[in-house]
Design a protein around this nucleic acid. Sequence first.
DNA 1: GACCAGGCACATC
DNA 2: GATGTGCATGGT
Length: 215
Amino acid sequence: MSKIHEIYSVLFKSYGPQHWWPGDTPFEIAVGAILTQNTNWKNVEKAINNLKAACVLEPAALYDLPIPKLAEYIKPAGYFNIKAGRLKNFLNWLCDSHSGDLASLEKISTSTLREELLAVKGIGPETADSILLYALNRPVFVVDTYTARLAVRHNLIDESSCNYHELQDIFASSLDRDQKLFNEFHALIVCVGKDYCRPRPLCDLCPLSHLPRNT
DNA sequence: GACCAGGCACATC
DNA sequence: GATGTGCATGGT
């Protein structure tokens, strides 16, 4: 069994299925992906609940909402002015180019969609891939800070070459190109990340602590 | 009070 | 191309 398969196996045995992404609709998932940038999910939940309570958590309503009003609703998620602009950019793309309907993206190839998402100002690689995987069910491996920490810590990658694309390639190339597997794996990495993949210290209670790792 | 959280764009060198 | 900085709330 490869190191990466072993990591997955240990995490799945420790934490079980994660049932990701937390969100009722693909659109809610996409909004959550933008709101959770560098932010604790609990804060994002508050912001999403505000949008739900105001009945604006759907493309047309959010598209019509003035940015200052949107910023007010999403305040608990932090960086609210920045994120309001980013959400608007996403809404402009979705509504102006794709009739405000995520389901209409089904016919577009994953690579084209990824390029289009990355062209939206405020959507970087992690957010684009999260939307592709969790909102649009595409087999794309999502990389985040925890993935990087885990990979460096367990010698899957050298810190000097640790960038998004390299990390994504290391995981994706050693796994079956399986949307459900990628979904579960990333969720499990975030799960163990929250518990143990903090910058320091290393913790021997981490389910991965018996695997080879850096100090 | 310090540190951290499921990034990203932009300025500067 | 690499590195530094601003953006901000809320939990531990």
